[in-house]
Design a protein around this nucleic acid. Structure first.
Lengths: 403, 403
DNA sequence: TTATTTAATCAAACAAATTGATTTAATAGA
DNA sequence: TCTATTAAATCAATTTGTTTGATTAAATAA
């Protein structure tokens, strides 16, 4: 807990700070990096030459300001490293290969139906093999594999994953040594996260939260999830459930989609339940993409669902404002972009109708940049984040990040 | 924002880590400190001799374990440093002198009535002079002065304080150069905070949150305030309003004490309003201490108020659970301890009636240790916290803490 | 009585950032 | 056109806090 630091950790941290500065501010010169980071020019110069050696950054054009020698600009080399992300759920497995800049290079999509752990592992391993088959990738630095799983997870010290929230959706998935099963076949760093947390991390790293150190991410996946980013880092909470927005109870009216004896907002955003409910009105929907047309057609039942959903979210966002005084709320996930955009546009007005105007500023709403593959991109970001993010815990001895 | 670090900062941080370990785990030997902090014995030895030089710690008795040389234990020297805290409000100014261990050495209480800034400054300066008059204090290290003011504050770069929430309560207090007025007469580090945040910090440093890195502190002061401690540090939020629990709207029934057109939970816990409301039932109350008897007598209106208050707090605490997944909720402030205790005992049951039991663990409730002077103790903690707390931002160059 | 274990510190080595000097390359102004 | 000035980048030497290795002292186990 209370652990000291030393100059080896300092080195690792400054390395990340310099990379992060190039990533966010690039193209940028060594001299500018030094000014921004308060590091000396010499230190920056040394770190940059390490970054160039490893091909994580590239030298760009010369840039002339007023007088003096022109500076050489630096920027991230997208091809400097690669990472793989898997988004696994009851109904699909999406695998993507992304480069260091977060560009999706390859994507593989499998429709599946309630796989058993052994089948899932096999499909995942094959997907990873396929994604890493190209020559280009073999020659570059491979950061590792990230896997996003639905809902809150418990991952014990033996790398066994248990899905604590919804064992019904994943029968035979309790206490599965998921991580070690993958590790046996994939010899690279492996990260397992719930898909909402993973999406939050990538929205922070590559997306709308790139320059926003404090935000709430709202993830519309199979259900309603989310994540909190505070002081630049994801805040997971005591039981790793921070931002599990779906748990909030209905405070006024209850959703017609809710059928549990403990009604909670997540039920309203449960896609399976939505499909089923719409089916009662003779609307046949199978995938989130199909909702676009309903929205464009202003389908009455769908609009009813959408507008009710916004109302149910208000207490959730009020809580974000009053409890954590959040700056920005980012909406993202598997829902089509136009629907996300609609919510981001509409919610500030609705929120201002219920909040206390003693307070100066209400949170801003942004729509996420990742789109339908946000969960897979999130998973792919995990290994990159682990290697490059300038989190302060890199400085702590307890984390063994000295190298 | 993104700023590097170097070995000077490492030194400052390790110094704090060692002190913190002695503070929390003491009496403890150098060897044990080294084991706990992952620092080498040599580093710990060097830092401890600096701590001994400055009299911040003391050597205690020898301690024999199994074999080997007996170790010398170390503990905080309470008399090693002093700090002053002022809790200022419309109706009172409390000044206290505390030692390095958080013991209150002297206390001065003034009843006041809506002072003007100039009058307040004068009274504060006199109080500080009085508190620092003893010989004992003059010879020890003086950390500085902390001032707690009610409600959310805005403190601009010129050290001008403006009370943004309730200008009616403090007329002529907008854009007062409060900090600089104090600095002219008191030549020591000065810290100004809202009293709920200050109380949160002291509860973290000395109180019930000493060993709890993530908690919500609920502060019953003139109104309802609070503070969030996340990852061991106070989290203030984008507009410094995190934990301003009073803003939460009533979600079911509305408090009879509420009289604004935007009813919010804070109104119910507004002491002035409570006194006035009780007055309507022929109960004459002037100070929070007077509420003890009403509680002990189970006075019907008071109990009505108390029980309703617990109900109004439930959505607030649900938000703390679902949004930030908080481990512990600490209740404290100016309300008498027995009333705080009653709430801490009763709330878990009430909360379990409304929360979703999918989730494993509900937050624990603790009552704060500071009691009625929590705000003043909080203020006094500010200078000590600034000097000794092992916050990771000590490691960042931007904070100029290199010495 | 001796070997072993442990605490604590002295002394030397190490590793990172810093400081100071140098080189290179551009512009501003005479 | 020439010279002074400004700025980027790096080489070389210095600084500084931690680490490593060795030593001393003090206790227990066998």
């Amino acid at each position: 807990m209370l652990t000291g630091t030393n100059l080896t950790y300092t080195k690792a941290y400054n390395f990340r700070i310099v990379f992060e500065t190039i990533r966010l501010e690039g193209p940028i010169s060594r001299a500018d990096i030094a000014r921004r980071t308060s590091l000396t020019a010499q230190t920056v110069s040394n770190i940059v030459s390490r970054l160039l050696d490893k091909s994580f950054v590239l030298e760009g054009s010369k840039l002339q300001k007023k007088r003096g020698a022109p500076s050489t600009t630096l920027e991230v080399n997208p091809e400097g490293a690669y990472s793989i992300g898997l988004d696994f759920n009851r109904d699909h497995l999406t695998g993507i290969l992304v480069d260091l800049s977060g560009n999706m290079k390859t994507k593989i999509f499998h429709e599946v139906d309630s796989l058993l752990p052994q089948q899932a592992i096999e499909l995942m391993v094959n997907t990873v093999r396929q994604l890493t088959s190209s020559e280009e990738i073999r020659n570059a630095y491979f950061c590792g594999l990230g896997v996003g799983l639905p809902g809150p997870l418990e991952i014990n010290s033996n790398n066994e994953v248990s899905n604590t929230v919804n064992p019904k959706a994943f029968p035979n998935w309790n206490n599965v040594p998921f991580g070690s099963m993958l590790k046996e076949q994939i010899h690279a760093p492996i990260f397992i996260e719930n898909n909402a947390s993973a999406a939050t991390i990538s929205e922070r790293w590559y997306g709308a939260g790139k320059n926003i150190p404090n935000f709430l991410y709202t993830f519309f996946g199979a259900g309603l999830g989310g994540g909190l980013v505070l002081n630049g880092s994801i805040y997971e909470g005591h039981n790793k459930n921070a931002g599990e927005l779906g748990y909030f109870p209905f405070l006024g009216e209850k959703s017609p989609l809710s059928d549990s004896d403990q009604p909670h907002v997540g039920e309203h955003f449960n896609l399976k339940k939505l499909y089923k409910w719409l089916n009662g009105y003779d609307v046949n929907i199978k995938r989130p993409e199909d909702l676009s047309n309903l929205y464009l057609d202003k389908h009455p039942q769908f609009m009813e669902w959408l507008n009710a959903g916004k109302r149910y979210l208000l207490p959730v966002f009020l809580a974000a404002e009053y409890m954590v005084d959040i700056e920005v709320i980012i909406l993202g996930g598997r829902l089509p972009h136009i629907i996300i955009e609609d919510m981001a546009a509409d919610l500030p007005r609705l929120l201002s109708g219920v909040r206390i105007d003693i307070k100066a500023a209400s949170p801003r709403f942004l729509s996420g940049t990742a789109g339908v593959d946000s969960a897979a991109l999130g998973a792919a970001t995990l290994p990159i984040f682990d290697l490059f993010a300038a989190q302060t815990d890199v400085l702590m001895k307890s984390n063994g990040n000295g190298g």
